[in-house]
Design a protein around this nucleic acid. Structure first.
Length: 268
DNA sequence: ATGGTCGGTTGCCGA
């Protein structure tokens, strides 16, 4: 296998959405799937159901009701690590290596609550701390020549056309200047390439999340691009077939996030 | 300007 297909998806409860996960894998022939918000503790993780989809190599870390990350793979995984983000013991970061040495980090950055003010909102403060932590962590651990991919729900839409209305969202958590600045600082830490914007011009609207609170998500189209695939610049040319699977938002009992997928040419 | 909807240790909290 020289090319693999990789997906990231905030599934918002892996147990509830097993039928959707099966449909997704059937239709897109995915080799590696990174999930966030699995919302299940490890002892209850549906490992057998996922193995039945053809993923023989599965690593996960979750909590009852909250958070939770998992990597499902048809290829063997090595060097599995479960990091604490900003030294808080929540299931937000898991990583593993593919057989060619490519390191995949699956991240679930906190949403950050409603009020973008660290004085009154500890969840927003924690979100900013996580961004600083990731900047330091990757900066200290990596060099630009490494083969590294970071995917996940970053809960930040950094660019003007990553949200339905730049002006109306400037004070809304996920698009405030302080978060964007910190995310872009993280992005510069080891010169990550934002693959969606590598393939799609920054002037084109691109979303991966639509709130449940809109009656008709497609009609109102008040979306945000919260889910990302980043790669170190040395491997950028190995990627192709980038897609944001908007149609999944219309499946039966959908997540509010849709999967983002990309193909990747493994090293020989 | 407001409230709208999901999922799950469900009559609240986080998203």
């Amino acid at each position: 296998m020289t090319h693999i297909k990789l997906a990231t998806w905030n599934i918002n409860s892996v147990r509830l959405r097993m039928p959707l996960l099966k449909k997704l894998c059937d239709e897109h022939n995915l080799d590696v799937v990174c999930l966030q918000e699995t919302k299940v503790q490890d002892s209850e993780f549906p490992l057998e159901d996922i193995k039945a989809l053809g993923f023989d190599h599965v690593v996960f870390r979750g909590e009852k009701s909250y958070n939770g990350v998992a990597i499902l793979s048809r290829l063997p995984l090595s060097n599995v690590a479960k990091q604490d983000m900003a030294n808080v013991s929540e299931s937000r970061h898991i990583s593993a290596c593919l057989p060619d040495g490519t390191e995949i980090h699956n991240l679930y950055i906190p949403a950050g609550g409603d009020e973008p003010d660290i004085q009154v909102n500890p969840k927003f403060k924690f979100k900013l701390e996580c961004l600083d932590y990731l900047t330091d962590w990757f900066g200290a651990n990596k060099i630009p020549s490494d083969k590294v991919i970071a995917v996940g729900d970053f809960n930040i839409a950094p660019y003007e056309h990553d949200v339905w209305s730049h002006k109306q969202l400037l004070k809304v958590v996920s698009h405030t200047p302080i978060e964007v600045e910190k995310l872009l600082r993280f992005k510069e830490s080891i010169s990550w390439v934002d693959l969606a914007r590598h393939f799609v011009p920054e002037t084109e609207k691109l979303y991966s999340w639509w709130s449940y609170r809109n009656r008709d998500w497609r009609k109102s189209n008040r979306g945000r691009r919260l889910d990302h695939i980043w790669a170190t610049s040395t491997i950028t040319e190995r990627f192709g077939q980038h897609q944001i699977l908007n149609d999944v938002r219309d499946w039966e009992r959908p997540s509010d996030h849709v999967p983002v997928i990309v193909s990747y040419q493994l090293h020989k």
